[in-house]
Design a protein around this nucleic acid. Structure first.
Ligand code: FES
Ligand code: FES
Lengths: 137, 137
DNA sequence: CATAATGATACTAATATGGTATCATTTAAA
DNA sequence: TTTAAATGATACCATATTAGTATCATTATG
């Protein structure tokens, strides 16, 4: 029932570091040294973030990644959806078909409400808020 | 990221039916006829609910299950925890060890808040509320 | 041209999920 | 007292998801 899987988690940590370094190019080596996260796995993750347009990448010696968007614009919802697909707390289906009772199902209605709330909260958590407040500690 | 897995879902549906039938003994056959859910799987699920004291079981011909507690007292949290363990939306650990930064980690703090809310909402959804409101439709 | 970086892609291991299958035990009723 | 209809206990199996590795190609810099 995890809201956040490992890859998303690592992505958040890495993005925070990269965002803090502003326009400096950060390599995977820099990141793994700091984050103690498996290198090939992190590489894969950063490549995905690059493809999705959240990072810019630079090849060759001295290469690495910079952040592609303002940290304000990168929310947890966005990062979660990159690695875990659309946020859906409740499918509440029967055997992969849409349940005929879906429209009147009370349980589904209530879970959908919870989902809306969670999504809104995750939307409000951006890289900026994570970095900014961390700086104050 | 599902809040509710298949077994929990089936358990909820089955418990609602059993609760509605009050003190009548409901067999797995009755339930599968009505719910269209795989029989051996549902059997396993009901056995677990029985062990956990949420159902009472009766063996032999004419046997089956009745509800053991007032539907008021059976919340979604309880049912989820039976099949999925304690509700923890965010572990946010590093390599199975507790993260040294856990106490000051902002992300964790925020996810924990979301978790508290979700848990409270799931606590408020009981079999009684599901049955009662369904009756009004 | 050597080297240090990423890009692309395929493979693998571990865990969780969603079940089946089998046999033992109990009990009501014929 | 036998039989059939139910659950109890357990072991097994199939699939999907998660969490990675491994390899080779490509690119940029000095
Ligand atoms: S959506 Fe089908 S029973 Fe809830
Ligand atoms: S709990 Fe370790 S970084 Fe958040």
């Amino acid at each position: 029932m995890k809201l956040i899987t490992r890859d998303t988690d690592y992505a958040i940590r890495a993005m925070c570091v990269i965002a803090k370094r502003k326009d400096k190019v950060v390599s995977v080596k820099d990141l793994t040294d700091y984050l103690k996260v498996p290198r090939p796995f992190l590489r894969k993750i950063l490549q995905i973030l690059n493809k999705r347009g959240l990072l810019k990448s630079y090849k060759g010696i001295g290469g690495g990644f910079t952040i592609a968007l303002s940290p304000k614009k990168i929310s947890l919802v966005k990062l979660i959806e990159v690695f875990q697909g659309p946020i859906r707390l409740s499918e509440h289906k029967l055997k992969k078909k849409i349940c005929p009772e879906a429209k009147i199902c009370l349980l589904k209605k209530r879970l959908d409400n919870i989902e809306k709330y969670v999504k809104a909260r995750l939307e409000a958590i951006t890289l900026e808020t994570l970095i900014e407040e961390a700086g104050r500690i």
